[in-house]
Design a protein around this nucleic acid. Structure first.
Lengths: 350, 350
DNA sequence: TTTCAACACGAAAACGTTTTCGTAAATAAT
DNA sequence: ATTATTTACGAAAACGTTTTCGTGTTGAAA
């Protein structure tokens, strides 16, 4: 087992100084052609590679970005990661992942773990618990210490930084408009409680679409699910709640669900009740995941372009990191990029 | 914007040496109660946190593990990551992710990027292209340099290291036996080409189950799909191939598919052809993902306990890392842990 | 022969820690 | 009053790099 070789070892073997070795390898003109060749040959033979940690310490940057997401077993988030990873790698950066599990304290701990020099900047999506508490001090402190953050998808105004978001209102509005133009008269929405920003915004879009068409939104047609039912363990409770929703709204003929799980579960309940789709009931979901594509009938959905979000987020962060280097001015002009949604029509709508 | 404070700065402010500050913060008895308090108060005020990079350089370990997987937008892999992340975090380690995208060169590049000091050890699953080439030099070189590797799921004999695998043969055999005991007479398998080890092994299990029941395996009932059709872009080709398979085997009444996609697609084709499930056709898949759970009919499947695999892999790697420290002996006794599969029965079987 | 560049290289500092060792001052023992 | 022992701290090395600056040698110019 041959340990990794260092400059010092090469220097000793070749009876030159460390500086000479370093310079030779970096093709400095200070070094004679002769020794340069000699050093390079030796380095190649022993497969020398500069130690990243030492470089990070010296350069005071790690070429690594930290990503903290609420959940990884989730089509949307894993797609975002894929996007991040792709551009990060292309631009010479590594990606280090932390999972908050939708928990405030895990989010804080994870951030602290990474913020002490391990990374150059963060890309993250806020956990539900944090959103509920509205306690954003850890983000602002991190930013204050000079570590840039890019927020994606779940962002809030209280944090001053770059953001990549989806136009939830507009995307939802388009979806509901589609249902209206497809002839639906009683359109319901299955959404989250209001403190989850995406739920709130998508509900706004739903209401806006109805009002634009002079339809009065009915409270009974709005079902707000508690986040606790999101987990796979509470699938049955979710199902029961949605079934109740159907029972309370006998004439419902269109449903807009703010995420894939709600949409799929609604479809399952409808099927159980013998409601034909899309004839008697049309459904549109949000987030283009694997479930939507493979459901029966396949689900019409609002795609968020998750991978593109990841790519943009990484580009934005790296741009800022590399801008800070040259231009040490407080260029505190934060951007918010809105990714356009796209309505992907499948079999669950006419 | 206040930059991160260092020992040196604290030392200067308090007019003591760096050593004193360091010792005071670590509660050394060499330091008087008086100065200890003073230093701690100051450090707390300025929110001092030791720089991770400097610590890594000094300790020659990073407390970070590198994970390289072929694909992240995949229920199985993201579940493994979740498991890894959970135990890694509990044991004080970070997780850095690399994606090979099933490509040999990306796998090599990613490994090189991380192997130069950024991490203490690897957890990885081999890319399909690497498996096809059978070129494992990069793994063996990494191991030779003293960096431990834990392979999971897709492992090969040629690499000498710890492994976490699933008993593919046994799991598949159980699944096919289930089909047989459920009365299926013509059981087909949809699998991959043989160089994908999991496909090969699962096919072995299929054949073994048949032979145990004195059923002669028929070549026409074995469909080996090319990996290129796995991607979401070639969904139609895959569908066509499976449809052809049905046409060639009119009396097929049971299907074992080696992954979720093949199973779901087979179900879709069957539904299109008006074949009732599970009455006329029973299907079992491999890998317990979201698709299986939410399909109609929901899919009976062989669960691999992905998250547990991740947890075991992380434990195994960290155990080795922390054993190497005390016990510098070449304790080259590599383990292979087999995770038991579990047949989860749902609606696609009787 | 003296002066001056050009050349080729090495010493040392710096990044931020931890830790070993040395030592001045204060206290205790003789 | 002398010696021994604590006590409390600082200097320096080490981890592995890069880079600035200084310097001894050479060969050419004066």
């Amino acid at each position: 087992m041959k340990r990794k070789v260092t400059l010092k070892q090469i220097a000793r073997e070749l009876d030159v100084s460390i500086s000479t070795v370093s310079k030779a390898l970096r093709n400095s003109i200070e070094i004679s052609e002769d020794t340069r060749q000699k050093v390079k040959a030796f380095a190649k033979l022993y497969n020398y590679r500069p130690n990243n940690i030492a470089l990070s310490l010296k350069n005071r940057k790690t070429k690594t970005i930290g990503v903290i997401i609420p959940e990884i077993v989730h089509h949307f988030f894993s797609n975002v990661i894929r996007g991040i990873e792709q551009v990060a790698n292309n631009r010479g950066y590594n990606v280090i992942i932390g999972l908050s599990n939708e928990s405030f304290s895990k989010e804080v701990i994870n951030m602290e773990m990474l913020a002490n020099g391990s990374i150059d900047g963060f890309i993250l999506s806020i956990s539900k618990e944090t959103l509920l508490r509205q306690d954003y001090h850890h983000f602002n402190e991190t930013i204050n210490q000079g570590m840039p953050i890019v927020l994606f998808d779940r962002a809030v105004e209280e944090i001053n930084c770059d953001k990549i978001i989806v136009d939830d209102v507009k995307g939802s509005k388009k979806a509901v408009e589609k249902l209206i133009s497809n002839g639906c008269k009683n359109i319901g929405i299955i959404t989250t409680k209001d403190y989850v920003s995406v739920g709130r915004l998508r509900t706004q879009g739903y209401i806006a679409a109805l009002e634009d068409s002079k339809i009065h939104p009915k409270a009974s047609l709005i079902l707000k699910i508690d986040v606790e039912l999101d987990s796979e363990d509470h699938l049955e409770d979710l199902e029961n709640e949605i079934e109740q929703f159907f029972n309370n709204n006998k004439h419902i003929d269109g449903i807009f669900a703010v995420n894939e799980l709600y949409a799929i579960t609604a479809m399952k309940v409808a099927r159980k009740k013998g409601i034909k789709m899309p004839d008697k009931l049309q459904i549109i979901g949000f987030t283009d995941g694997v479930l939507s594509k493979h459901a029966t009938p396949s689900l019409t959905t609002v795609s968020q372009h998750a991978q593109k979000m990841g790519e943009k987020a990484a580009d934005l962060l790296i741009d800022r990191l590399e801008l800070d280097i040259d231009n040490e001015v407080e260029e505190e002009h934060y951007k918010t990029i809105v990714i356009e949604t796209e309505l992907i029509e499948r079999e669950s709508t006419k």
